[in-house]
Design a protein around this nucleic acid. Sequence first.
DNA 1: GAATAATCTTGACAGTGTCAACATACCCTA
DNA 2: TAGGGTATGTTGACACTGTCAAGATTATTC
Lengths: 217, 217
Amino acid sequence: MAEKKPKDKKNYHHGSLRQGLMDEATRMIALGGAEGLSMRKLADNVGVSRTAAYHHFKDKNALLCAIAEQGFQKWQSHFALLMDEQSGDMSVWLGHFVQGYLNFSRENQEQYDLMFGRTIWKNGAPTATLKKASFSCFHNYVDLIRQWQVKGYVDSNLDCLRIAQVSWSTLHGMSRLLNDGIYLDKGAIDAMSKSAVEMILSACGTQQLKPFTAAEC
Amino acid sequence: MAEKKPKDKKNYHHGSLRQGLMDEATRMIALGGAEGLSMRKLADNVGVSRTAAYHHFKDKNALLCAIAEQGFQKWQSHFALLMDEQSGDMSVWLGHFVQGYLNFSRENQEQYDLMFGRTIWKNGAPTATLKKASFSCFHNYVDLIRQWQVKGYVDSNLDCLRIAQVSWSTLHGMSRLLNDGIYLDKGAIDAMSKSAVEMILSACGTQQLKPFTAAEC
DNA sequence: GAATAATCTTGACAGTGTCAACATACCCTA
DNA sequence: TAGGGTATGTTGACACTGTCAAGATTATTC
């Protein structure tokens, strides 16, 4: 403690502190959530002084926004992959989509919380670029449903914006209830997914698949 | 500042500090959220010393749990009122229910966040009594759907637990997206509610109402 | 090579939750 | 009624937090 690591004189300037901070912060957040992230511990882990980060991010909120933004990029590339595999059967594909969404929100719990949670959106203030990322993310989804209407998969008397909002809400709600530990039975995720898919399909006026059997009530 | 309020000797003991703390805390949380609530400011507002609260609540988390629990009681009485007005037409009633849920979550935003948010469920630890309140709240909803199946309103081949989970997720998701400021257009709430109702109805295998017209997409 | 800008460090401040030790008032029994 | 135990309230202290201001060091540019 008395002696700090020598760190050869060269790197008084770290070189890539911004990236280093983001990486370590992402790691720490994945472990202990955003509220467990302390700017001081972060700096310490990266091997830099308390306030060094403030030369790269206006404040803690700005750091969190940057990490959320990266989350949106990650999701967009997942989404793009899903879009590629779009084949004939919409209802099968929707199953993949729902599964993909829930997997993403589970595997990136804390980052997901930053992307869609109150830490940034309510308490902090979303960066302009973060806002953009989030909106384009949602609009991609609306566009998808619009396409489906054109292709005749979805009743075109329906308002695609509402369908998008409500179905997204369903996925978001499930993600939250699971991630936050209100729904605890992780074993039920598959069954819930199936129900969600059926629900969305029926709301779309799409011709129904064979209904899944479910009786234990 | 030099002189503290005299507070006639009588009330060294406050008399009803526990309730006083809860009331003021609820008020403060409604204004600035749970993360804006400081134990010290709270004590100050109630006119008591920093640590007095710790004789009534184990820690901050316990206080928050108590407030969340009160939230569940409030919701249960709303729910009971709704149940009373249950008349013949299930689809009309479901509309009232959805509206009631969204109203509750909007009018009690911060308390709702405590009831169903990560502050307690993920980060803190829910009190035993809070857990009980929350579970019985959800089970009431499951029971309702079970009743509907008996009455023939809902396809009894469906798993009522799944229906409950998914439809609740929809309502929770909408509430969160609105409360946390991700969905901003409060003017769209009614339209979203209608869509949500239609979606849940169609998922229940209930005979459809006249579909709402919605075309601006 | 000197000036300017970018980056990093130390010091400081006002907050936070909560533990330990002490003070006061109430209540119940002898 | 006296006295002791218990519930409730207070003050002091500790380790932590985010972030501002001022100074130190290196990189960049004219």
